[in-house]
Simulated assay, not measured.
Amino acid sequence: MRLEDRTCPLSTTVRQVGEWWTLLILHDAFDGYTRFDQFQESLGISSSMLTTRLKTLVADGLLERRPYQQGPTRYEYVLTDLGRSLRPVLVALAAWGNSRLPAEDRTMVLVDATTGAEVEPVVVDAASGRRLDDSEKYVFAAGPAATGGMLARYGPDRPGGRPDSGEDAVKSGYPQGS
């Protein structure tokens, strides 16, 4: 892993949830599955792989392991607030997958729970309500903690770049230098 990947939010997120089984387990958790045997039956995953993935999801703070039965003790895996915050990401991934298919070939669609009408999820800016899928209007820029590779890639000389030195950087709270 490159040094700049260790601080890149995309790289760190993919490292945490980018594995095939992880996304499917989270999808099942959003559908209300909490128990080992439910996940295993739904996914057809081996016990050892499921155990590994669940331990990682718990260690990463996405699921919480709670006892639900004594003698023998059995555990359930419940989404945490952090885990629940990933739902829009999974919804967007599913919508992207569906967008490439004819309507009759879609095996799962997102619908309004009240009306049953199919909805089209989009990612928008919370402040303006504008869609973020236009790569000319919205670009990544170096953040306050950016150093080295991130500044080289997204620094002040790039579209949408922010200052990395001088008075403007001090005013904006951005780091000076690389």
Rank of each mutant, 00 (worst) to 15 (best):
R2C: 10
R2G: 12
D5I: 02
T7A: 15
C8N: 15
P9F: 08
L10V: 14
S11D: 08
T12Y: 05
T12C: 06
T13F: 13
T13K: 07
R15Q: 15
R15P: 07
E19V: 08
W21G: 13
L23S: 07
L24G: 11
L26E: 01
D28I: 07
D31V: 07
G32E: 06
T34E: 12
T34R: 06
F36C: 04
D37P: 08
Q38N: 11
F39G: 04
Q40D: 06
E41Q: 11
G44M: 03
I45Q: 07
I45F: 05
S47V: 14
S48E: 15
T52R: 15
L54N: 00
T56A: 14
V58G: 02
D60Q: 14
L62S: 00
E64S: 12
R65P: 04
P67F: 11
Q70N: 12
R74P: 00
Y75N: 03
Y77S: 02
Y77P: 03
V78G: 03
L79G: 02
R84A: 13
S85D: 11
P88V: 04
V89K: 01
L90A: 01
L90C: 02
L90T: 01
L90H: 01
L90Y: 00
V91T: 09
A92F: 07
L93Y: 08
A95D: 06
W96K: 14
R100L: 14
R106W: 02
V109M: 08
L110S: 14
V111F: 06
E118D: 10
E118S: 02
V119R: 05
V119T: 10
P121C: 01
P121G: 06
D125C: 09
A126E: 12
A127H: 13
S128C: 05
S128Y: 01
S128M: 02
G129F: 00
D133C: 04
E136L: 11
Y138W: 09
V139G: 07
F140P: 03
A142H: 02
A145C: 14
G148Q: 03
G149K: 00
G149S: 05
G155Y: 00
G155W: 02
P156R: 13
G161L: 00
G161P: 05
R162A: 10
D168Y: 14
D168M: 11
S172V: 09
S172M: 15
Y174M: 10
P175M: 15
